[in-house]
Nucleic acid binder design. Structure first.
Length: 298
DNA sequence: ACAGGATCCTGGGGGC
DNA sequence: TGCCCCCAGGATCCTG
């Protein structure tokens, strides 16, 4: 679930509570975390001091005083929190790292799509991101680079936004919100998007992410920040999760379709299929077998 | 190469 | 109440 704004919020919450702290005992839960975490890593952590807390895409990066980096990905349901050791341990807590102040860093993840990885050096981390071809941060993405990236694919813009190799940190919520902001139909082929629309989209992504960071991210069901508080941006969604409800700009009912395997929300009137030079492709109604209401037919 | 679908997990909600 | 199906802030395989 957590996308860039949620991850950024967690990092900002954790930074003052982790940086300067020394790590103690490490306790792993019985179930593996996408097989990334290696039990042996637990032995390398005690005694190390946290020197930095940062974010790259949807990754949380804790720099240690031996040059190693402890990286966390929250997947769909991951939570990374600093809590007093006395706080009751919730279910699905997979990793606990003691701190030198009666608190501990707890990684909890119901669905276990998340990951924890120890990189021995910053070089290893860089190699990892290179291998994954992790794209640029949205805030660093230049207009020219973005235009070229869009021009090189036949996929629809929604799929492009979700692809971490194209731009890092955007997920399903903010892809939909940014496309609404840019007034672009999510099914538009990326390569057919005009230069003007591409630039609108690039700016919309930045705008929406900044707004969401200001509101400490979106909490729909599982997400909380590094101190356990929910975010508030869900109250400002223009399209995400608003199927059938009136568009806040034009009152037309918000539609939902499935694109790139994900629920996709948009306003059929504000995000028309037929912008000049922007030809939307395939899109099927969400409705499956069981009378699930198809949003497109209010 | 490329795009879509299945898959990994667990839990919640709705329909019957 | 119970069962079954669908759904979910993600990413990675596999297939055609």
């Amino acid at each position: 679930m957590p996308e860039l704004p949620e991850v950024e919020t967690v990092v900002r919450d954790l930074r003052p509570r982790l940086v300067g702290r020394r790590m103690g005992s490490v306790i792993c839960g019985p179930k593996p975390l996408r097989r990334r975490w290696q039990r042996a890593w637990g032995r390398q952590l005690p005694g190390r001091r946290v020197v930095s807390a940062a974010r790259r895409g949807k990754w949380i990066l804790l720099g240690l005083d031996d040059g190693a980096v402890l990286a966390f990905h929250l997947g769909m349901t991951g939570r990374l929190q600093v809590q007093p050791r006395s706080t009751p341990l919730p279910r699905h807590t997979h990793l606990r790292i003691g701190l030198d102040n009666d608190h501990e860093l707890r990684f909890r993840d119901i669905r276990r799509f998340g990951a924890a990885v120890r990189f021995a050096h910053a070089d290893e981390l860089e190699a990892f991101f290179r291998t994954a071809r992790l794209g640029p941060e949205p805030f660093d993405l230049t207009a020219a680079d973005w235009r070229q990236r869009l021009a090189r694919t036949r996929r629809c813009v929604k799929a492009v936004l979700l692809d971490q190799r194209m731009v890092a940190g955007v997920g399903n919520i903010y892809a939909d919100e940014a496309l609404f902001e840019a007034r672009l139909h999510p099914a538009c082929r990326a390569r057919d998007v005009s230069a003007a629309a591409a630039e609108r989209l690039r700016r919309a992504v930045v705008t929406v992410l900044r707004r969401a960071i200001d509101r400490r991210g979106s909490s729909i069901r599982d997400y909380v920040g590094g101190l356990g508080q929910p975010g508030a941006y869900q109250d400002e969604f223009r399209v995400y999760g608003r199927v059938g409800q009136p568009c806040l700009r034009c009152r037309a009912p918000i539609a939902r379709i499935r694109l790139a395997g994900r629920s996709t929300h948009f306003c059929p009137r504000c995000q028309p299929a037929g912008h000049p030079g922007e030809v939307p492709t395939h899109h099927r109604p969400m409705a499956r077998r069981r009378g699930v209401k198809s949003a497109t037919v209010g």
